[in-house]
Computed example of a mutant assay.
Amino acid sequence: MENDKIIKWCINQSRRQRHDFMNYLQVIFGYLQINKPNEALNYIKKINNKMVMLSQIYNLESSYIALIIQDIISIIERCGLEWHIKSIISYISDEEITKNINKYFDTLEKIKNELMLIIKSDFKKQEIYITVYSIDNIQYILLTNTSNFDDSYLSELNNSKDLIHKYDYLDCKAVLIKVI
């Protein structure tokens, strides 16, 4: 991958974080201006929980996976939904991701646009749980509307060439994203 693409990607992530941080401060300032310190404290606790979850992502061995997950979180937040990290594997081979990252970048916008449409239509007003899997050296990110999702079917999807798989059964909704 060309260095300018990596730099642009990182700068865009930093811009989003700065924008979010400024919004957080404005909300807290607003609560304090209208003399609602308890709401400000509750909001700070909510932000703190979000930062703890983001720390799990940033502590991953692979910075690429961290940035990809951050992209997905950004999409979720733009849809006005809350998110939680359900589980995340602690080690993902950076070597495997690095040699295939161009494939991801080539389809990044397609994935993001398709994911935005799915989240808007299927996950209305629901919290989204994020899980990262590695199955046979292929990295997946699973988004579900329940923390009790039965993931036994995931290995069957391993041979598919599709980048996004949608699962919808009764009240259970899931999207499986093949990263690399």
Rank of each mutant, 00 (worst) to 15 (best):
P37G: 02
P37K: 02
I6Q: 01
Y140K: 03
R16W: 05
L170E: 15
F149S: 11
E95M: 06
K45W: 01
K50L: 05
N59A: 07
S62H: 05
H19E: 14
L117T: 13
Q26H: 08
I73M: 04
S152G: 07
M116I: 06
K46Y: 10
L81T: 02
D136L: 13
I34L: 03
D162K: 15
I97T: 12
Y24G: 00
K8G: 00
F21C: 07
F105H: 10
I7P: 01
Y169N: 13
I44S: 13
D71I: 03
N102D: 15
I92N: 09
Q17R: 09
Q70C: 03
S74Q: 05
D122I: 00
I44C: 11
I118F: 11
N158F: 11
F29D: 09
G30C: 01
I138H: 05
Y64P: 00
Q70A: 06
A174S: 13
N49F: 08
Y58D: 12
I118H: 10
G80C: 08
Y91D: 09
T146K: 04
L163H: 07
M51D: 10
T146G: 04
N23S: 15
N158L: 12
C79E: 13
L176I: 13
I44V: 15
R15C: 00
Y140E: 04
K161G: 04
S121F: 03
T144G: 07
S74D: 04
K178Q: 14
Y140P: 02
Q17W: 06
Y58T: 15
S62Y: 03
F149W: 11
N145V: 07
